[in-house]
Amino acid sequence: MLKLIARKLLQGLLMLFVVSALTFALLSAAGGDALTALRDNPQISEATIERLRTVYGLDKPVMSRYGAWIADALRGDLGESMAFRIPVSTLVWTRFLNTLLMGLIALIMSVAASLLLAVWSVRAKSKWLDRMIEFLIFLTASTPRMVLALLALVLSLRLATGPSNYAFQLIGGAIVLAVPLISLMLAQLKNGLDEVMSEDFIRTARAKGLSEWTIITKHALRPSLSPFLTIAGLSLGGLLGGSVIVESILGWQGIGALVVSAVRGRDIPVVMGVVLIASAAVWFGNALAEVLQFANDARIRTGER
């Protein structure tokens, strides 16, 4: 277990290093920075811009700039936002907490909904319900988050709350984020459960006279949980991508909306900060999913060596 965690940690640090280096190189190679826009302003002289370049350290070569950036980043200092004039770490962290809140609610909703529906369909054994669920999976898989978010916006205009209501943004946004996840998780869970239910040990459990409820929750659910956790872990990247859209449309102040405004305003330190925290968050979620699998599934534990 400790070995797994150590390996994951090393992998994550390596990934953060490579991703930040690549993003930094790409952003520097293109040349444009927040000061480029100032050049168009005749009121600002070339000398002022040069001075500002020295202040921000933009006159040094890329390698030394990245070196300085990473040295500061290790100390928790990600520089200052050029647009907001506050430390990037503070800005990105407060926004990230908002995104995390919405994302967690979405995750809980989708896990609960897919568990509920999958278990219900296995218990009910009704053809009609199976078909309904298949249709639901298909429909939720085909509806992009952008369309859903716009529909939520239209709906909010009809509601008394209006679109800028905190609770509406949070819950509406979480539902929009959750819908495509439900299709993924529900499909995975239902297939897994259907497969497990025809196994020998389930028949043994039935023969022992256990109730169907115990059989499903105690015996059938655990082996189907591993692929489910993998899917949940892998869907985190998509969840963050989806939050970019949802936050921009519904006006939720998270890192998704932040990165869009930073890209538009060429606020490079903020872009770097968001890339860093988003990659770290997705990596953490994946690592967590793997550790949970390890704890849940003896087959993985013994296979590990």
């Binding site: 444009g32 892998l234 990247g237 970019v244 998704g256 930073a262 890339v275 994946n286």
Partner: peptide
Amino acid sequence: ALPTLILILAARAA
């Protein structure tokens, strides 16, 4: 495992 859309946006900023 990367958050693709955020990286695409970052790349677009260049």
